[in-house]
Structure formats: C-alpha cells, structure tokens
Amino acid sequence: MNALAARRRHPAAIALLLFLGLALVGATYSLFAPKPAQAAVATADKVADGKALFQANCATCHGISAEGTKSGPTLIGVGAAAVDFQVGTGRMPLSAPNVQAPRIEQVKYSQEQIEAMGAFVASLAPGPAVPDKATVEAEGDVALGGELFRVNCSMCHNFAGSGGALTRGKYAPALYGVEAKHIYEAMITGPQSMPVFDDKNIDAKGKASIISYLKTVETQPNVGGMNLGNMGPVSEGLFIWIFGLALMIGTAYWLGQKAA
C-alpha cells in the first residue's frame, strides 16, 4: 500500500489511470450490448397504449399531443423510426437538459413499449417507419459503403466511426456497438444535429453498404496492434511523449547508474 501511495504521483500513474479508465469504459460498453428488436405492427391497441405511455412520460416536453413545447420539439411527422432510435438508444427520455441527448446503455422502456409509442407518433402524421430486418441486414458492398461513409459520414463521425466534435459542445457520437437498425434509423430521421439521409439521398443499398462497412471495420482485427482509440495523430503523439519518452529516459537512467 505504501509503495502504491509513493508512486501515486509518478508520471506514469496518470497514464496508467487513463489506460485503466479507458479499459473499464470499454468493458462496460461490451457488457451492455443492445438487444435485437422485433418488427413492429401498429394496431389500434398499440396506438392507445403508446398514447398513454407518451402522455405519462413524454408530454411534459413534447406537449400533450406531441405538438412540441419550449423544452422539446414537435414529434408530428417524425415517424416511428425516430421514436425507435431516440428511445431505443436510451437518448430519450432525457434525464437532464443538455446540449445534446447522450446515448445511454440502460434503455428505459421495453421494445413493446417503444413500439407502442412509435405507433402513436406514427399515427399523428406520416413519417419514416422502423425499417424491417431484411432492409437493415441486407448484404451491402463493403467497398462502396466505405466510399459513401467517407464522403457522407466521416467528417463528423471520424474515419473509423470513433466520433468527433461539433460546435458548442455538441458532438457526433462514436458508432461502435450501435445496432444496425439504429444506424439505419439515424440516417433516415436525422436526429439532433445530424442531417437527414433518406432513401432519396442514399438509397437502401447504399445504407446497407455503409452499415456493412461499419460492421466490418468494427469486427476486423487491429492488425497493427493497439489502436489508441482510432483518434488519429493526437493520440499517437501523446503515446510517444508519455510512454515512448518514459521508456527511453528510464533506460538511459539505468544506463547511467553505477552498478551495485
């Protein structure tokens, strides 16, 4: 314990802590992998259930008939896909006002409840529907997906989908561990700062290709070793300054010490 306390202020301690922290976050991430969803069928019952759920949980911000208030936008015409994305990724309900609703692993509602709320919102005005499994999991062309991703997505989400900064504290989130369905829904609904990429912009095959590309990138091995978060040269620079230099100085120090 004393040895630990003594090394508390060691320069490597910060790096080690950072590393452990990152590892922990990574581990937590993988623990809470999202669950697969079932296709939604809107029935009158569902709409009624959804309405009840909506009025109990969402109406404070979005208005009693989803017309929107000062603290939340209107949901008329956003479609079931928007509900499935926002609630299904834990972004809604928003726990506290913030520049942006963060993705939360702990989803508050069951898939049935989400579908019911989606059915209610879809019943208000036509909007993008939740894509079916076949569309989402259609075989895509990975190379084409990569090209589409670099032109349409990587400027915000980074070349490897690690996320990036937007203005005034907003950000494009990382795309690791996101269900294919949710990626698809994000493209067709354009949540928060994200623009809309509906089928008239990038067709269904293009979207499937983008998703295939992302999944390929996510599952392929880190051929060169630890990827340092895929953040580009900043993390490489930090690494060589902290670990590289420490190794070199440590070795040089040992070299200059008189032997016992």
Partner: peptide, 15 residues
Amino acid sequence: PVGLYEQQTHHLLCP
C-alpha cells in the same frame, strides 16, 4: 472540405 452540417443550427463546421 467543410462537411459538418448541423441541421438544427444550420451551421457548417470545418473539421
């Protein structure tokens, strides 16, 4: 390339 379009604020950001 100034590609980062925030559709709510209508701001374009250069990365």
